[in-house]
Write a protein that binds this DNA or RNA. Structure first.
Length: 588
RNA sequence: GCCCCGGUAGCUCAGUUGGAUAGAGCGCACCCCUCCUAAGGGUGAGGUCACAGGUUCAAUUCCUGUUCGGGGCACCA
């Protein structure tokens, strides 16, 4: 429809150029928009305002010229000039018929398009270190990433969802010794748990499980483990320093000592059991949350394949590697990063950055047209160096989009729920899902723009009332479903849209916007647009529902129209909720 | 100090590549079920779009500066 009107205006402009009213160079980029106010018709164009100075006359005068030059169209009822020179189009109500029929023809693919057809997109999200269960912050990344992937899928991309498992670095070693130390405690050894160790309760659980499965095979006296290890930093419960020490050196020394005492085989065993326990938990958690990955990509495998060393060699060949203070540096400042970055540490270990470069290079080599990373907002400083490395390796970073997700803050009884990473005192994703349910969690996580901090109201998410947008929308879907079930078959040939009431027109207008909404949400990576849209549609449906009788309507044409509209709304709610990862119940 | 994100109604937020009278939900004040799910609907009050400049016929929207809030500036991830 918009296209149709745009063509009309372009034709008018062409003839005005011929008449010499407008110069030859006039732009044919016609802007049309839906009106906000009903009095302004259905569509409006500010074209006369934009072009007035080229025509050398007042906008209103130009608008009149355009109006006379506009070809007639049976789909337009009335055209007016208003305000400073807007041209308002009022659609013929018969144009609405086509909309309803079109939605029925599209089946369950209404709103979907093929804009991305033939293109491959990869979305990498969550990718939390497997050092503990997912918490509510990861949850937002999970819901957001899954929805962005669904949106790209809806507009025709071939999408691959991927989780990058950071299972090779120092943090994993710290996890392994944390588990082992808890295991020793479990077996009666007394020790002071390191400040930089993983202190969560889950570590004890894994340790106890290892003991239950394998008995005392890993027991060693704690005194031997801690003998002449550098002093740890000791804090009290308020974070004040009680004993000055180097907690990182302390924990690194413990890792070394553990590897020496346990031997390669037993150390690997603890390491792998810990990793498996946590990764299993993460995978279950995400699957229960309705998130399916095509690929779980292991950093370990990447490192073992030699890809990381290969990548460093590539950077060296390109001339961007130098040595300083015993470490290897990447000259990222040559590509706009604020300083150079270490890629191999003095102790010979690669930094995480090194494997991240190799991983991204590998992603590029897999040939995706679109590579999307979803990170927490606190990682934003990391973007320039990753892009720098890819550029140094000769890649075009336009294919890479890094999307940042701000934190979610939980509120219960109007109070902020305290969360501190120290002491491992955070709310897990699993706890949140258990408390509010998957549907509410998925919806609440994405209903705000991702770059916006999210105030997550737990009480609202749990409430079964109209105040809760998830229930409001699901309820409408259920209500329509039962309504249509009672009504039986809809006779589309009986539909006529000659005299629609206001509520009906509003619904149809909104329905026509749905494909565009999905497109905008997909191209802008903004699931919140869908959430806002669907809420708005449901609200309008409720107005309509309140205004008319549907089942008891005697006039067959009206009856069929209203049923058809209900069905159209249902066919819009359904795919929207699917994209958002929320159930669309038939009954409630 | 530098970098990223944000500042719109009492609260939480929308606001479509700059457009006509800036919207919604909650909260507040009233009101509506002989009727398909009241898990719903209606009416009203409530705004210096953080502030100051600039670009434009037109700025909440774009640019610059200021200010406030969040986050980041490691041989941690």
């Amino acid at each position: 429809m918009k296209k149709h009107l745009r063509n009309l205006i372009i034709q008018a402009l062409n003839s005005l150029v011929q008449d010499g009213v407008l110069p030859e160079s006039t732009s044919r980029n016609v802007v049309l928009e839906r009106t906000r106010d009903r009095a302004h018709g259905d569509f409006a164009s500010a074209i006369a305002l934009t072009l007035a100075k080229f025509a050398n006359c007042k906008p209103q005068k130009l608008a009149e010229h355009i109006l006379t030059a506009l070809p007639k169209s049976e789909r337009v009822d009335k055209i007016e000039i208003a305000g400073p020179g807007f041209i308002n189009f009022f659609l013929a109500t018969t144009a609405y018929n086509a909309v309803v029929r079109d939605i029925f023809d599209r089946g369950d693919k209404f709103g979907h398009s093929q804009i991305g057809a033939g293109q491959r997109a990869q979305v990498e999200f969550v990718s939390a270190n497997p050092t503990g269960p997912l918490h509510v912050g990861h949850g937002r990344g999970a819901a957001y990433g899954a929805t962005v992937a669904n949106l790209l899928d809806a507009v025709g991309y071939h999408v691959e969802r991927e989780y990058y498992i950071n299972n090779a670095g120092r943090q994993m070693n710290i996890l392994a010794i944390s588990v082992w130390l808890r295991y020793l405690e479990h077996c009666g050894e007394r020790l002071r748990f390191p400040t930089s160790g993983y202190r969560g309760e889950y570590v004890r659980t894994i340790a106890a499980q290892i003991y239950a499965d394998q008995g005392g095979a890993y027991i060693l006296p704690a005194a031997r483990v801690f003998y002449s290890i550098p002093q740890d930093e000791v804090l009290d419960e308020h974070g004040n320093i009680l004993v000055n020490g180097d907690k990182e050196a302390h924990v690194d020394a413990l890792v070394h000592r553990s590897q020496a005492l346990l031997g390669e085989l037993r150390y690997r065993s603890i390491f792998n059991l810990s990793l498996k326990a946590i990764l299993d938990d993460i995978q279950d958690d995400l699957q229960d949350f309705g998130i399916i990955y095509e690929k779980w990509y292991s950093e370990q495998t990447l490192a073992e394949s030699g890809a990381v060393d290969q990548t460093i060699k590539g950077l060296r060949n390109a001339g961007y590697i130098y040595e300083m203070d015993g470490a290897l540096w990447f000259r990222s400042s040559a590509f706009g990063d604020e300083k150079d970055r270490v890629i191999k540490r003095e102790n010979g270990q690669n930094t995480y950055f090194a494997s991240d470069i190799a991983y991204h290079l590998e992603k590029f080599q897999r040939g995706f047209d679109l590579v999307i990373d979803i990170w927490g907002a606190d990682h934003h400083g990391y973007i320039p160096r990753v892009k720098a490395a890819l550029q140094a390796l000769g890649e075009n970073t336009d294919r890479l989009s890094v999307l940042l997700v701000q934190f979610a803050i939980l509120y219960r009884n109007g109070q902020r729920v305290p969360m501190s990473t120290r002491s491992g005192d955070f709310v897990t994703l699993r706890e949140l899902r258990k408390e509010v349910g998957n549907d509410a969690a998925r919806f609440f996580y994405v209903m705000r723009k991702s770059e916006q901090h999210l105030d997550f109201d737990l009480d609202l998410a749990k409430s079964q009332s109209k105040d809760n947008p998830v229930y409001y929308i699901q309820y409408a879907h259920a209500r329509i479903s039962t309504l249509l079930e009672r009504a039986g078959k809809i006779d589309l040939s009986e539909i006529q849209t000659a005299d629609l009431i206001h509520e009906e027109k509003e619904i149809i207008k909104l329905l026509t916007q749905f494909p565009l909404t999905i497109h905008e949400a997909a191209s802008g990576y903004s699931p919140a647009i869908v959430a806002t849209y669907i809420y708005d549609l449901v609200k309008n449906y409720n107005h309509f529902y309140q205004a008319v009788k549907i089942l008891s309507e005697e006039n067959a044409a009206n009856n069929n129209l209203r049923l058809a509209l209900s069905e159209c709304v249902r066919r819009t709610i359904h795919p929207s909720l699917m994209v958002l990862g929320v159930q669309a119940p038939m009954k409630m």
